[in-house]
């Protein structure tokens, strides 16, 4: 079924919307959740919360790209579950490495301005991503949005792992400069 028809079902409060979403984007959302949580049970929990989140978000939203919209919900909910789990038990894993890498974007003595809205920071990051080359941008988003492992990214784009690491390092350095320049990091 087409995205817009599924969205229409949400707007009509038709519960088949969830079944259609699950059929079309279930695997996609599960892979996002699994990338972050590395636990099937937790990933399924995140997935169920995602469908509920989508049910509550549409309406008022009317997403043009339902896949990305649902994916964003899955990512946010999975991160929340990850954070609550790691608060109980500090652990490693791929997501931890990715988040550590993101920390590099903010110098030790500086911090993100808490008063800034996430969307303002996201707009700033959008601006930064627009200036990147397509290959660099794809690698960056795979790593910090989807939390793919370096190995997966290298395999996906047919790069060597060292090349992926180097691309990510350069992108992070440039992001840090951009955030400083835009006053997002103080």
């Amino acid at each position: 079924m087409e995205d817009q028809k599924i969205v229409e079902l949400y707007w009509n409060r038709d519960e088949t919307a969830i079944a259609e979403t699950k059929a079309k984007y279930g695997n996609y959302c599960f892979s996002i959740a699994q990338n972050i949580l590395h636990n099937q049970q937790d990933a399924e929990e995140a997935l169920n919360d995602t469908y509920l989140g989508a049910w509550n978000a549409i309406p008022p939203h009317h997403p043009l790209n339902l896949g990305t919209f649902i994916g964003k919900i899955t990512r946010r909910l999975s991160l929340n579950i990850y954070r609550s789990k790691t608060a109980e038990k500090r652990g490693g894993g791929q997501i931890a490495v990715s988040l550590d890498e993101l920390d590099e974007c903010i110098a030790d003595e500086k911090s993100l301005r808490d008063s800034l809205d996430d969307q303002v920071i996201a707009d700033c990051i959008d601006e930064f991503l627009s200036d990147l080359k397509e290959s660099e941008r794809r690698v960056f988003v795979c790593r910090y949005w989807y939390f793919d492992s370096i190995e997966d990214i290298a395999s996906r784009f047919r790069y060597s792992e060292s090349k992926v690491k180097m691309m990510l390092k350069r992108s992070r350095d440039r992001l840090r400069e951009h955030l400083l320049k835009e006053g997002v990091v103080v």
């Binding site: 990305t68 991160l79 988040l99 993101l102 974007c105 903010i106 996430d118 949005w145």
Partner: peptide, 15 residues
Amino acid sequence: MKNNKLADAIGLIKD
């Protein structure tokens, strides 16, 4: 400490 705010902001980038 992991920077949750930056990770969340990245979650809101353009579709």
